[in-house]
Design a protein around this nucleic acid. Structure first.
Lengths: 214, 214
DNA sequence: CAGGGTTTGTGTACAGCGTTCACAACTACA
DNA sequence: TGTAGTTGTGAACGCTGTACACAAACCCTG
């Protein structure tokens, strides 16, 4: 007996099977178009076809769900950065190669911010998700989180004698600050709505500044 | 007849007199400790001692109230930056003076972000408040908004022949990106909880980078 | 100074949100 | 087969933003 027949794709079984993952995916979709504020628990359960309180079997509260979405978003960011790195030609000069890798990390970051503004904002919404940023659920395919990818690029820069070793400590914070700030401007600051070409140009100039100033 | 006598500081008169300002101030207080999400319309009316719907005589909706608070926060930021500028010694060398003024703009920004994180976050919460940032309600005592203060400092840098004129266009976006990004890290990123001394140190290093790299 | 019109605050109501809790359906293991 | 544990249901609570009819206070004109 399938009710009156006009019910939504009702589950055949009483149990859902993989509700946690389903909610996480629904939440991620909400974050994708709408940012962190758009990931609302009731809407996620609605999309999955489950009653609101069912979510509490898998997430302590709405914040826990948001935290999970946030980790997933960071992971997606890491993947985007890795993709940018993978597109690099294996160059001869190790100094140039190291420089190119740092630039790739930055442009990957900026490209993701512009391509997926909702997810990007969500990635940095939860308070303590940058602090304990080493969790594997926040990593890309290489197992490194966005922050760790940046740190690795800076290490290579030192290895290639481009960045003086004494300037290395804390350099990730300087580089990250600059790129993250620009991302904000591009997403909903005065630089919003810039076409990709101009945005990429701004990114190039910014990374130039970082490279010179680091 | 003052009711049963156990009513809160009930207004003597039916009219409030300056409800708009009162709501704005209550909202600002909410933003100060709690950020943009904490400015909730009902709580603001409660604090002012007025029924919720009364707010709609002065603000179209909750977003309008938040927008007003956001403008006020930007104005406060501008005042903080002006204070930093005012503390500068009138130096002899115009080049050094221009450099010092740019640094003051940056450190004022960072100092405010750390001293008033809630207001700072609120200042940059409303989507289109950086775009049309020229409104006088967002300005400090000098009549300049935070962005305009930065632009002025950069102009002086060109005037003093420190920054090549061809690099001036768009330079405010580069400088702003770096400082704003660091502010984010300090407020709720991995650099959160840094004591003032260390934070100031990070700020100095970052501004060094900007100065070198601009 | 009398009265009407406009502004501004009141009271009540509604839908949507997060969250709780008792209960029911299913699973797994003895 | 029975029984304990897991997972989804249903109804409820208090909170939010918002709408609307009504009432009080001010203002202006005669």
């Amino acid at each position: 007996m399938t009710d009156t027949g006009i019910s939504p794709p009702k589950r055949a079984t009483y149990r859902h099977g993989d509700l946690r993952r389903a909610l996480l995916e629904a939440g991620t979709e909400l974050a994708r178009d709408g940012g962190p504020d758009a990931v609302v628990l009731r809407e996620a359960t609605r999309r999955v076809g489950v009653v609101p309180s069912a979510a509490y079997r898998h997430f302590a509260d709405r914040d826990a769900l948001l935290g999970a979405v946030c980790s997933a978003a960071q992971s997606a960011l890491a993947v985007a950065m890795e993709a940018e790195l993978a597109g690099l030609a294996r160059e001869g000069d190790p100094a140039d190669a190291a420089r190119a890798r740092l630039r790739a990390v930055g442009t990957g970051y900026l490209r993701f911010a512009q391509a997926e503004p909702g997810l990007f904002q969500t990635a940095f919404s939860a308070s303590d998700n940058l602090r304990s940023a080493a969790s594997p659920i926040r990593a890309g395919d290489s197992g490194l989180t966005p922050f760790q990818l940046l740190a690795a690029a800076l290490d290579e820069l030192v290895e290639a004698d481009v960045l003086p070793r004494e300037r290395r400590p804390g350099a990730e914070f300087l580089a990250w600050s600059a790129v993250h700030g620009l991302a904000m401007l591009l997403i909903d600051g005065p630089l919003r709505g810039l076409d990709h070409a101009r945005a990429q140009d701004a990114g190039r100039r910014l990374i130039d500044m970082v490279e010179r100033g680091l």
